[in-house]
């Protein structure tokens, strides 16, 4: 299994691996210019965009090389093919997170990166899982279209929903309540978030495995 993950990293994710140091350099520059606090706010955008780009690039490489046909004609269980992509995607997202966290931790003066980095890595993992599930279900062309417009929809949809559902004082009260709950459960919150991320990732992994094993390659 490790050799399959390594093959996926060194082939499908080769160009994305090369962007890991780039992310570190970019975050260092941002932290120096804006200060670590403000730069940390951009970690979410940076990590999710890089995770999305890495998934898209790997799917493109698969499509170009007709990799699904290759794998399905080799004595490799479809579950292994999907597992290697999920594990390599996870490794890559963690590397993106590390590339962003290190400059923030070093320039921020503390041994630990700000909490926004953990949120960014969690969001990157969730996005990777959802991307792969759609990819194995519908293929490269569909996933590239869906996620292009899907991301826009999520960003603007969230803003619109927030505006519609949380107007005025009621919204502010709700957000304040949420913040208070988070404050009161600050020890538990990281574990809850991590568990939620893991559940979403594993569920999408299982779904993708089941879809790919039954998929017809016309």
């Amino acid at each position: 299994m490790i050799w399959l993950v390594w093959s996926d990293l060194s082939l499908g994710h080769r160009s994305s691996l090369a962007t890991v140091p780039l992310a570190a350099v970019l975050m260092t520059v941002l932290a120096l210019v804006m200060g670590p606090g403000e730069a940390a706010a951009l970690a979410l955008v940076l990590v999710t965009m890089m995770a999305w780009g890495a998934g898209l690039r790997a799917a493109y490489e698969d499509d170009k090389a007709d990799a699904w046909t290759l794998f399905r004609t080799l004595p490799i269980a479809p579950a292994w093919v999907v597992a290697s992509r999920y594990l390599s995607g996870l490794v890559l997202t963690l590397l993106f997170g590390l590339a962003v966290a290190l400059p923030l931790a070093l320039l921020g003066g503390g041994p630990r990166p700000p909490v926004t980095v953990y949120v960014a890595v969690g969001a990157g993992i969730v996005l990777t899982g959802l991307f792969q599930a759609v990819y194995y279900r519908f293929g490269y062309r569909t996933v590239s279209t869906w996620f292009r417009y899907g991301l826009l929809l999520v960003v603007f949809g969230t803003m619109l929903l927030a505006r519609l559902l949380l107007p005025g004082a009621g919204g502010a009260t709700f957000l304040a309540g949420l913040a208070a709950w988070a404050e009161a459960n600050s020890a538990l919150l990281p574990f809850l978030m991590a568990a939620l991320v893991a559940v979403i990732y594993v569920a999408s992994w299982l779904y993708a495995t089941s879809v790919f094993a039954r998929k017809e390659l016309t």
């Binding site: 082939l11 170009k64 090389a65 046909t69």
Partner: peptide
């Protein structure tokens, strides 16, 4: 196959 499944 006709389409060679080998990465570039």
């Amino acid at each position: 196959g006709e389409k060679l499944a080998l990465p570039d």
